[in-house]
């Protein structure tokens, strides 16, 4: 039981920390794509390419650079999280009511002020939705981390496979599913609350 709790805690820490970093990078790239459309096309294409690389292959590639351990897993999770976060960020910003932007310009807001005072606050629900998708994905991808010497629930699943012990496999897999569902539900609730004053 302690082993399970420990694995769960480890799993959650890696995923949430990775997502925190991924959000900062993803939103920044999303804003860049919004401000500079040409860069956006390239950025989103790259994120899409990353998304298509099988997780096992990506982990192997990253291992060459970062070695074994949690950092490599975190980098992989951050890379995988980019597409949903960047895409939701640019979409949200591009779909803002143009009259609100016009009013913000007319009031004398600089581009940065418009972004921070109006555009980002109004885009938060959709950006948050992107982070939710990324986080739920990461919870299952992180299971693969065991192959590059990272911890988490993947370790329990891996041991189960080695011992041909179905019970142990499920002991690792079921918490992943439960946590993912729980996050999906709770973050969905938050998303609705955030949308209250954006239209």
């Amino acid at each position: 039981m302690t082993e399970l709790l420990h694995a769960m805690a480890e799993h959650l820490v890696i995923v949430t920390l990775s997502m925190a970093v991924a959000s900062l990078i993803g939103v920044a790239l999303g804003v860049l794509s919004y401000w500079w459309h040409r860069a956006g096309v390239v950025i989103i294409a790259l994120a899409e390419i990353i998304q298509t690389i099988p997780s096992l292959a990506l982990l192997a590639l990253l291992m060459i650079i970062f070695g074994l351990g949690d950092v490599t897993l975190a980098v992989a999770l951050i890379l995988y999280a980019q597409l949903p976060i960047i895409r939701n960020t640019t979409t949200a910003l591009n779909e803002l009511d143009s009259h609100i932007i016009d009013a913000a310009r007319g009031m004398g807001m600089s581009r940065a002020q418009r972004l921070l005072k109006v555009e980002i606050p109004l885009s938060i629900p959709m950006i948050f939705g992107g982070i939710k998708v990324a986080l739920v994905n990461s919870l299952s991808i992180a299971v693969m981390g065991v192959l590059i010497g990272s911890g988490g629930l993947g370790y329990i699943v891996y041991r189960g496979i080695q011992q041909r012990n179905m019970g142990r496999i499920l002991l690792g897999a079921i918490p992943v599913v439960c946590i993912a569902l729980l996050f999906d539900y709770l973050m969905g609730k938050v998303e609705v609350r955030l949308s209250k004053h954006t239209s």
Partner: peptide, 20 residues
Amino acid sequence: GVELRRSIGYVIQQIGLFPN
């Protein structure tokens, strides 16, 4: 332009209040 616009009031048909 930014400084100038702060010194001139601006009202548009679509109102454009900030919903947040």
